[in-house]
Amino acid sequence: MAKGDDVEVLEVAGHSVRITNPGKVFFPERGNTKLDLARYYLAVAEPLMAAMGGRPVLLQRFPNGVTGSSFFQKRVTPTKADPWLTTTVVSTPNGTTSNALVAVDLAHVLWAVNMGCLGFHVWPNTAADPAHADELRIDLDPSPGVTFPMIQEAAAETKALLDELGVASLPKTTGNRGIHVYARLLPHWDGYTVRAAAVAVARALERRRPDLLTAAWWKEERGSRVFIDFNQNAPHKTVFGAWSVRANPHAQVSTPFTWDELATIEPRELTIETVPTRLSERGDAWAAMTAQDLAPLLDLHEHDRADGLPDAPWPPVYPKMPGEPPRVQPSRARHE
């Protein structure tokens, strides 16, 4: 590590990465600086790269820390100072393309940190194989009135269903109030197919525990239940990445954990200060994640189709899809 006039230069992955204004406070409530954030990512480098290495990432930049304004940056252009930056072409739902940063190595991560990126929104495919989504991401989203113990119970139900279907899964905190359940997939299916599997999982979970879980896209139909956000698997959709730091006052980390820890996990305790120690003591909770077959979940999808269920609603930024029901709130449709 070299020091200059208000600059720290980190030698990482064969590149010299500048951290300008390293003492700038990014988390005022805790006093953590930009350099503290960079050091955190250095400390979790191995599992971080195992989770998102080689994937395109969307940057949400907070140039003045968590209390300042932020903006999303999808387009990245290598500069004269950093010609080694790697990008790849990604698309939006309407077909617009841009060159997104690829998390090739930790130097790319720290370059983004220097730009004020706290955490990373990650594509479900690698840059080398954009046609295939190799992750199923079950987002257990807390609706108003949902407590974290309810989220934990929802995660347990998700695990039980996937276990019955022979699909191994692993959880992580979202860094806020939810839990994500991931299954690594063989790179054989596109995002449309993986989303169809996610819709089937959401509906199966709702049938098992309608008191706790809902697949209802419209908020007015959810009540105080955990929403299984199947559309996090829609093509071109990014999800907040494992080991990434959230822009909240506590500097919480979206932390992988084991199923044995589900009942005791406390998201507020998982921060940029505590997670490196936890990692050194317990290792990477996702180290055993392996690629699997999506077929059992696609069988669920086919059963739903045979029962006459239409597709679930898509987000409004997507074009109208074949078999999709009308994009009208149920209360409005009844009124009309």
Rank of each mutant, 00 (worst) to 15 (best):
R327A: 12
E29T: 13
A202F: 02
A215N: 04
R327Q: 09
L106C: 07
M150T: 03
L110Y: 02
L110P: 01
M150A: 11
D6R: 08
D134V: 03
V245C: 07
Y192A: 14
L42V: 10
F72W: 04
V199R: 00
P78I: 13
M289R: 13
V104F: 04
A204K: 02
A200V: 02
R75L: 06
Q152V: 14
N231E: 04
V122P: 00
H188E: 15
R334E: 15
E164Q: 13
D299A: 15
A100N: 00
F148H: 09
G68S: 10
V239H: 00
S98F: 13
K219R: 15
E281W: 05
T79M: 06
W314F: 11
T238C: 10
R332Q: 13
S331K: 09
W217P: 01
L297Y: 01
D229H: 05
L279V: 11
D139T: 07
A156M: 07
A183Y: 03
Q60W: 08
Y192T: 11
A81W: 05
G241S: 10
L106Q: 03
A154L: 05
E8K: 04
L165E: 03
H301D: 05
D82I: 09
T277E: 13
A234S: 15
T88W: 02
H236F: 15
I138T: 04
V146K: 01
N233A: 11
G54I: 06
L262K: 07
D311P: 00
K3V: 11
W259F: 15
A154Y: 01
E266S: 14
A133R: 00
F120A: 02
F62N: 12
V44R: 00
R278N: 05
N99K: 13
G4N: 07
D304L: 15
R327E: 02
V199K: 00
R195E: 12
L10T: 02
A333V: 09
P256Q: 07
T173W: 03
